[in-house]
Write a protein that binds this DNA or RNA. Structure first.
Lengths: 204, 204
DNA sequence: GGCTAAGGCGACAGTCTGTCGCGTTAGTGG
DNA sequence: CCACTAACGCGACAGACTGTCGCCTTAGCC
């Protein structure tokens, strides 16, 4: 639909050299600025300056501010996810939740998450990135829960997807909505709470 | 600290007439625009036009775009909260959660919530509004849970605050983060899940 | 070592923010 | 009922930012 050559991101025409360097510098500078001043106040002049690049160069690749931000968020979302395997469901869950706590403690992750939350309803491409990102994460977490279920650490009747949602949701509620601090103890507490019914039924 | 006469919001110098009307029109127009185009793209020109007011009039009251948005959000947060009392804890919780579901289904509430989530870390006054808003809501919900506890519908050892957090968190996770739809059935399911341990212990 | 895609550079129009001074109007208080 | 004056309307303004353009320069590829 778009004959424009922009927006091809990594498939730069000079993949070995300056183009690639400039592209990476721009995306990195965008993320830094984004975390620092937010989306609304983001200025391409400053991004260009920080990246050591002329502003026109940015526009040669991305049509506008929104597209650039989408690309930057997309690039930073491409982190790989550690797969926990401590041997017990409780251990795996603790590890995962503590990882979330650590991630949400980073100002950069918080800022990025906030931007995605704020813009996803308005920007289809951000919506798409968010959906696939969370789907991946959830599939992994659900797999961990399923493994625990097969080991008999959780009742067969438990809905794994819902279990994961209920387990992690308070971390995001505290961070984004009610603005309360997160601790490892809190995370562990959530795990205990989620596993309590299983323990109780063991006692019968 | 600020000798400027701006920012007094409702304490206008001509409380009876044009000033009050203009102020209300501006705040209302701001909210409408905010929901429609978001914070980043909000233009005071359009707000002024929608409010039927000259742009300078806005600046006479609020120093900048940020202050105006804060005032608008603050004004809209002043809604009163219905206190449920169905006679049973399950009924009260279902009512509260369905109310949250309904609220989050409104584009205006979603948009406002998203703006608050995105800006609270950056704008102290938005942070303050958010904190007091949620504290009020949570106190009410905790009171409902405590009442249920006194009726014996919930174990004495349950942490009411944590109970409320875990109960409502998935609604916000789905709305803001993982972008999944909310239904009344889902809300009821959460209530059942939260009350399950209490039911199980009744059976002993 | 030459060809050429891509970046550097500066100028540009258009939009938005925030400010100002002056004229006008509509509440307020007598 | 009327005069006073606080507050608004209006248009001009500087400054910042967005997005575009054409020309020149450079660095990567063969």
């Amino acid at each position: 639909m778009n004959p424009d050559r922009r927006g091809d991101a990594d498939t730069a025409r000079r993949p070995g050299g300056r183009s690639a360097r400039a592209g990476a510098a721009i995306l990195s500078a965008t993320l830094t600025e984004l975390v620092e001043v937010g989306y609304a106040a983001l200025s391409l002049d400053l991004v260009a300056a920080r990246a050591g690049v002329h502003r026109a160069t940015i526009y040669r690749r991305w049509a506008n501010k929104g597209d650039l931000v989408v690309a930057a968020v997309l690039a930073s979302a491409a982190a790989d996810i550690p797969e926990p395997d401590t041997g017990t469901l409780r251990g795996d869950l603790q590890m995962m939740l503590r990882d979330v706590v650590d991630t949400l403690a980073l100002p950069s992750s918080r800022a990025l998450l906030q931007i995605v939350v704020a813009e996803a309803d308005r920007v289809p491409s951000i919506d798409a990135v968010a959906r696939s990102f969370w789907q991946q994460r959830f599939e992994l977490a659900v797999a961990v829960v399923e493994r625990g279920k097969q080991r008999g650490e959780l009742g067969e009747d438990v809905d794994s997807a819902l279990f994961v949602e209920v387990l992690v949701a308070p971390l995001y509620l505290r961070t984004l909505v009610i603005r309360q601090p997160l601790t490892d103890q809190y995370a562990d507490h959530l795990v205990d709470l989620a596993l309590a019914p299983a323990l109780a039924s063991e006692d019968r």
